[in-house]
Amino acid sequence: MITAEGVSKKFGRKEVLHQLNLTLDRGVYGFLGPNGAGKTTFLRCMLGIYPLSGGRFLYNGAPISRKNDLTAQVGYLPQKFGVYGELRVCEALEYLASIRRLKLANPAEEIERVLRLVNLEQRVTSRVRTLSGGMARRLGIAAALLGDPEILLFDEPTAGLDQEERMRFKTIVEEVSPGKTVLLSTHILADVDAICDKIIILNEGQILYDLPAAEVAELAEGKVYEVDSSDQGEMVVGIREEGGKKWYRVLSAQPLAGGRPLEPTTEDGYLCAIKKL
Rank of each mutant, 00 (worst) to 15 (best):
G6Q: 15
V7T: 10
K10I: 00
K10H: 02
K10F: 06
H18V: 04
N21Q: 08
G27D: 13
P34H: 11
F42N: 00
R44E: 15
L52D: 08
A62Y: 02
S65D: 14
K67A: 09
L70F: 10
Q79H: 08
Q79P: 05
G82T: 13
E86R: 09
L87R: 07
L87G: 05
R88A: 02
A92R: 09
A92G: 15
Y95M: 07
A97L: 04
A97Y: 01
A97T: 00
E109G: 01
E109K: 14
E109Q: 15
V118M: 11
V118T: 15
S126Q: 02
T130G: 00
S132H: 01
I141E: 10
A144G: 13
E150H: 01
L152E: 11
T158G: 06
A159E: 15
Q163R: 13
E165L: 03
R166Y: 04
M167D: 11
R168H: 07
I172L: 13
V173K: 08
V173H: 05
V176D: 05
V176F: 05
S177V: 08
S185C: 13
A194W: 09
A194S: 14
D197P: 04
I200Q: 10
N203D: 15
G205N: 07
I207S: 07
L208N: 12
E218D: 15
E221C: 09
E221F: 03
V227K: 10
D228L: 05
Q232D: 02
G238T: 11
I239S: 04
R240F: 02
G244C: 07
V250W: 00
G258T: 12
R260T: 12
P261M: 01
E263P: 01
T266M: 14
E267F: 04
E267K: 06
D268V: 07
G269I: 13
L271V: 13
C272W: 01
A273C: 12
A273P: 01
K275D: 06
